[in-house]
Write a protein that binds this DNA or RNA. Structure first.
Lengths: 346, 346
DNA sequence: TGACAATAACGAAACGTTTAGATTAGCGTC
DNA sequence: GACGCTAATCTAAACGTTTCGTTATTGTCA
């Protein structure tokens, strides 16, 4: 690159170079580029031409240092492999990009310690805001987020005692109505494969299940509840435990989409048929839920709305840093009744 | 925050603050923090303590400006909603994070113009490297990437005439063997739902299909080929066209996972059954391919290896900027034979 | 005792912007 | 022609690091 020819051609041109080329000061170039101060037509044209000629691009890092703002938001999700999260991520991405923001994506694999690392990484890089689907324990999260006065929007999962904006679904209500639907089909022994109880979604969804049982006067409590920790593999073993009981459940509800896979695998592996022998429903809809067999009955989350609201929230926080009351947006899930649940025989 | 009390407490402490607190110069603090120069035990301890006390964190933006390096790589994929990409993204994420790098994720929605925007956004922010699953036309890509002397690794899709590292799958070979498998089952009229032909994957996969036909002495050429552009919806209409022909195909191959969904939907909507009436196979495996019915026969890509190799490549490029020959890594796909293809009847 | 390394700490100049405040130019008024 | 008043432009000081060249502090050896 650098020709040895008296003057060395810089690798990447700076505002200074533009200023020299256009015969003005850097301040004027800055004003012209950003439109922050009036600059005469004549100069503006000269500057623009110089920019074209030498191929100048503004250095966002230098700008960030000076401005104290990076037009970047960090996005932390528990599992990028989960279709629910990817759908939400896609929407957030889209909205933020339109607003000129970049997105730094991090993935915590449902691990609290990894989560702290990732948040630290993002905070170091001075992201203007943070959207988090929190994994694991709340304490670490709170500790890391206090002090850093970066605006935070929680999605999907709440964090106790952290006064941040949040957009979540009414999990309890959704699972309660799904469970009620199953009960109304005549099922009494209903298995429940739960997510991690250190997340608000894990707790709230379970609460919905229990509430429906109670309301129906079924009182075995959490007898049929097993922990699946939101992963297919854990759900598989959990389901196996349920299916090998003498009084095995005639229906199973899985608290998220990944766990449904584990449930179905287990059902297949013990030689049962869904929905013939056992009914299944799960949280989170996915695109092929109604094209492969059995067509799954699910609770669809409003992913589009969740993503949009989260993005809007963080944008408004970033635009106007003054501390306001945190806002919680609660959306409703929707029960998609398909064919994986049948009335209980006999 | 800022108490009005004589001296105002800074929002976020700087190295200067640490220096004052420890009674040393900023240069020494920097040396201690980075270990770039020897500093006596005594001072190091004082500095460390000061850091703890005032809660200092190094400002990565300032550091980037000075160092000309951001320890961030940009990751551009065509569709974050596609399980293949998310799997790869997850692996890349993981490897890069371990190496201390952050990942900026962008999504182009298969649009060339959006892609240029996104790359521009990343380049502005001075990412140290770029991993790209290229969408659309190659010219724009080349134009944007030249000049910026940022290392680039292409994944999944090649870009003609761009001398960048790349890790791809031998698409032609994989599809050829899958098609051969279908032919060997006795099928003659085999539909092919293609991805966009402006991508190398679109072209190579189609080439594999055609090669298998030719080798088997079947010579209707691209009679049964329809464009699905890698999206479920387009694949649906494309499949509909095929299924309403008088000589409708007895088997269909879809060139990626999303399009399989469209194909299955179309088959269902015209009242046919897979695999009873029509056999189906597709590119890209997914977790539930073998738990829901029909168990899909697919070509599994080595997502783990793709992600790892891509991450390693970009890391080595970033570590050592000197221009070397671009490396192309070609991996093999694997045919996962399940139950969605049956011997042709009659 | 003085000369000379070796070592540890420091001062100050970058990196490429933004921006407050100073300067200049242009122009109408008295 | 001196004066003010705008509007346009410039000068220079930040922003928070890193790093080069320099100085201070030892210790060693002739």
């Amino acid at each position: 690159m650098d020709r040895i020819s008296g003057k060395i051609s810089k690798a990447v041109p700076t505002m200074q170079d533009v200023a020299v080329a256009a015969g003005v000061s850097v301040a004027t170039v800055s004003a012209a580029v950003n439109g922050t101060a009036p600059v005469s037509k004549k100069l503006r044209e000269r500057i623009e031409q110089a920019i074209q000629e030498i191929g100048y691009k503004r250095n966002a890092v230098a700008r960030s240092l000076k401005m104290g703002t990076t037009t970047t938001v960090g996005l932390v999700v528990a599992d990028i492999t989960n279709p629910f999260f990817t759908d939400v991520v896609a929407v957030i991405q889209d909205v933020l990009h339109r607003a000129g923001y970049a997105v730094m994506l991090c993935c915590t694999d449902e691990s609290a310690s990894l989560q702290e690392e990732q948040i630290s990484l993002l905070l170091d890089r001075m992201v203007d805001g943070l959207i988090i689907a929190a994994a694991g324990d709340d304490d670490g999260l709170r500790r890391h987020l206090r002090g850093a006065n970066t605006p935070v929007v929680l999605i999907d999962r709440l964090c106790h005692d952290l006064d941040a904006d949040a957009v979540v679904v009414d999990n309890e209500d959704a699972v309660k109505s799904a469970t009620k639907y199953i009960i109304d089909l005549g099922h009494r022994n209903i298995g429940y494969i739960s997510g991690s109880l250190s997340t608000s979604t894990g707790r709230d969804r379970l609460a919905g299940y229990l509430a429906a049982l109670q309301e129906a006067g079924i009182d075995y409590g959490d007898e049929f509840v097993r922990l699946g920790n939101f992963r297919a593999k854990d759900a598989y073993t959990a389901t196996m435990q349920l299916l090998t009981r003498p009084d095995r459940p005639s229906a199973i509800f899985a608290a998220n989409n990944l766990m449904v896979i584990g449930v179905m695998k287990a059902i297949r592996d013990v030689g049962l048929d869904c929905p013939g022998d056992i009914s299944v429903a799960g949280f989170d809809d996915f695109p092929w839920a109604d094209v492969f067999q059995p067509n799954l009955t699910t609770i669809a989350q409003p992913v589009q709305a969740i993503g949009e609201q989260a993005a809007e929230l963080i944008l408004s926080r970033v635009a106007d840093k003054k501390r306001r009351e945190p806002r919680h947006i609660v959306l409703k899930g929707r029960l998609m009744i398909r064919e994986s649940c049948r009335p209980r025989l006999g």
